[in-house]
Amino acid sequence: MSGEAKLIIQDLCHHYPDEYTGESVHALEGINLQVYENEFVAIVGPSGCGKTTLLNIVAGLLPYREGRAMVDGNEIHGPGPDRGVVFQEHAILPWRSVARNIGHGLELQRVPKEETRRRVQEYIDLVGLSGFEDRYPHELSGGMKQRVAVARTLCADPVIMLMDEPFAAVDAQTRITLQDELNRIVMATAKTILFITHSVEEAAFLGDRCIVFSRRPGQIKTEIKIDIPREERVWKDMASNPKFTNARDEILRLVRQEVTSDDEH
């Protein structure tokens, strides 16, 4: 992968006090990571390995003390529109219609109304929500809500899009559709993406590069390149693609090592 690094993380460590005991919890240890332009990086690891902590630090929702984290050459201080986040719990506002939710980022950045309307329409069409512009979130299915969340983030045109297990809360059938669609959207928009998941299949299917995390304290265990062109990444073909199945089995083996060593512990 060529191009300049959009996200740079150097020697990042993180501790936080446990909510009940007050004891210091060691969540991340010595993370070094670069995400290049137009790259799709998937982070996979056992639950509680600190991958969400990492994403929250990059999003600016969690302050960090040790190490560095930079986006587009700027040190990260607090959340900002250059890093869009798609949360697991589709964090769209229940009192705004679909169109007003998607245009919210532009509204906050004081983009002129005409321009906002045009771009909102563009992204509504992209995620396949035409005809639902004036609906409210409670009238939508879980999958549709997540499409709104993705469109909302893309519409604000961030440097990097962070996705925190975005498809974990939808049913299996919808998840497959959404994964296919995310691929299509990535091709259409050429975005840089950092994607967190606990599903090995999802990571191997979507990622140009898969980062496997060890269990707590979270460290980067291995990195696996998956060299499949985006156009070929469609579920009906992927299941029989040896590059995919090999990568998947390899990641699965690595993650399982972590889980079993956790059991012995």
Partner: peptide, 20 residues
């Protein structure tokens, strides 16, 4: 998470009050 959502869209402190 609704507050965080608006913050990551570039919303200020005042925006989170007004919009969330």
């Amino acid at each position: 998470v609704l507050v965080q959502g608006v913050q990551t869209l570039g919303g200020s402190y005042y925006d989170t009050i007004k919009h969330v």
